[in-house]
Amino acid sequence: MDLLLVPYWADRELDVIQWPPFLLASKIPIAVDMAKDSNGKDRELKKRISADNYMSFAVSECYKSFRNIIMFLVRGDREKEVIEYIFLEVDKHIEAGDIANEYKLSALPGLYDLFIKLIKFLLENKQEDRDQVVILFQDMLEVVTRDIMMEDHISSLVDSIHGNSGHEGMIPLDQQYQLFASAEPSNFQLLNQKLGKRSILTPYYTEEVLFSLHDLEVPNEDGVSILFYLQKIFPDEWTNFLERVKCNNEEELRGSDELEEQMRLWASYRGQTLTKTVRGMMYYRKALELQAFLDMAKDEGD
């Protein structure tokens, strides 16, 4: 029912408007690729992501969800202090608009892959996966501090946490920060519940969304074309279609690219399952937008 109240907050702790997953599908992998290829150009990266509103929403929700999940699982004051410091540094550069210039975002796909593995472990919620989760957390820390934040950022991180003025006698990072060893599997069940359910719409493999003119005209083994068959199955609708586009017969439709496309749409809506599915999705989107508008108008009226 939450999807009928778009925009909505499934998790109030995120402090971000959440949109239905089908509107945000595939946005994060694309954004990760954009960041990887940004080459330190913050303005260009921000412009490309902001050009797609749903991509911008997806990036914001993903980052805040990532932060909440990590902070939820990590235990221990020292561990939390280090993680909070890392997120504060990232937030500072996001606010300043120089994150691509300061950090090596070409390593971001590695962190993304590790986070996907973490989510799978959390969803499966198996006690025997605890050691794998701990190792996964440590790998994520290494990617962030060594590959993304780079060496000078690691030094400043260590100095700020421990108050050291130099690096003499510093314990190697692998031994010094066993940050996630205290992540408790008992927390996985609660987190699994907070993640909620996700639905995915999967088109048929290699199936065309719209019939092409060739598809409509080619006769089958019985000598009957798709268009001819649909005209006989839906005679009234075909007549109404011709009247709507102000044509007297099929031949007049072929004098214009726009009319030919209208004919392809007419046939696809009646004979192509995937087209009807996509059309229904788009109607559903309009319905959600209308619902959101009415809800916000109602709130303003109150």
Rank of each mutant, 00 (worst) to 15 (best):
S182Y: 07
L290Y: 13
R244H: 12
V144R: 00
R43T: 11
Q18H: 02
A181M: 08
D302P: 05
I171L: 10
T275A: 11
R244C: 14
D295P: 03
R78W: 07
L122Y: 01
P20Q: 01
L216A: 04
V134D: 03
K276S: 14
M282R: 15
V133E: 00
H162L: 13
L88T: 14
V224R: 05
F293K: 13
E208R: 07
Q127Y: 11
S56D: 15
V133Y: 02
Y205L: 11
R264M: 03
E128M: 11
E261Q: 12
L108N: 01
F188R: 05
N164D: 11
R48A: 15
D15G: 05
Q127R: 14
D174V: 13
D295H: 08
Q291R: 13
A25I: 06
D131V: 10
M149Q: 02
L118T: 01
I233A: 06
F87N: 01
W19G: 01
L108F: 03
W9M: 12
Q189S: 13
E217C: 13
D15N: 09
L216S: 02
N192M: 10
V82N: 04
N68Y: 13
N187V: 07
L288Q: 11
E243R: 08
D152E: 15
Q189M: 10
S186P: 06
L157I: 00
I116A: 11
D299C: 06
V144W: 00
H162N: 12
E44P: 02
G166V: 05
L290I: 06
H214M: 09
D302I: 10
E168Y: 11
Y112V: 01
A51T: 09
L213R: 04
R78T: 08
L45H: 02
